[in-house]
Amino acid sequence: MSRKLAETISTVMSGLMRPWGRSGLFRRRALWAYLFVSPAVIALLLFTIGPILFTFWVSVHHWNLIEPIPQMPFAGLDNYRYLLTKDSVFQRALRNTFVFTVCGVGINTVLGLLGALLLNTRIKVRVFWRTLFFLPIVTAPLALGMMWATLLNKNYGLINNILTKLSLPPQPFLSSPRQALACIIGIAVYQYVGYYIIIYLAGLQGIPQEYYDAAAVDGANAWQSFWHITLPLLRPVLLFIVVTNTIGALQVFDVVFAATTGLAGETSGGGPAGSTMVVMLHMYNTAFKFFRMGRATAMGVILFVIIFVITLIQLRLLQERR
């Protein structure tokens, strides 16, 4: 799918040079076309292209959102320097975000594949199972965060009740600095596993049955045909899943907010003791609680660059082995 995008970009680039006729009819239609693209293009300029340039610009200034823009004091790289050397909350948030992303994406990459392989066999009412795995994806992350926070409640939660019934020790879960991040990862795994399953399933169903038949004739066992047919042919799908979900996971906000703010007087969330602070939440607090827009936009830029680099590395790694 990313190849398709690359092709489109290259045709567009070559089209830039094309000479261009001008009859009256042509010009009239061109006017219509301008009219048709203008709502979307104006909105894109206003809400995407303009803002990203503005983000880079604000990130080298000090700004509190109220001060007139021409009077923002220039900060150079101060915001970036502060974040990377002094802001321990940001460093903690960056580390937590990485752990969250690596664990969440890693677990679901494997779990999703297992689920898809299972659903790809002969199964009665496959649609039912598929819908089941999909329910969490269409549910608001905020709502899911709330459901799990109740389930994982230290005293009254159902999970601890089940643990007690199985004569296992009850756990503090979200109220323990050691377990909270793992709980958040667990909630994210729960929420997105269906997404992986759907995409893997689409990939699996694109592999021709003849390959497996031929392998079976040659005496390959199930494991061999999985290793030598399924896995190599799933590589583009794997690439797609890992890249898109890494990008998504690095921006996690809603679930952490729902499961950790307000608990035991924690107003800024990310608790207990900063153990679940993530970049987006820290950015939100910095911008809209403390009105340090320069620092907050600098965080955005850092995360953006990280996403960019990780995406490039992943594309390179996964394509090379072909």
Binding site: I9, V12, M13, R29, A30, T48, P51, Q251, I307
Partner: peptide
């Protein structure tokens, strides 16, 4: 439609697809 600047504008659209929501949030 064929119109002057179509490809430039389309490149703009493609570029916008790569920009995550959070980077533009504050502006």
């Amino acid at each position: 439609y064929d119109f002057p600047g179509r490809n430039v504008l389309f490149l703009l659209v493609l570029a916008s697809m790569m920009i995550p929501f959070f980077v533009t949030l504050i502006p």
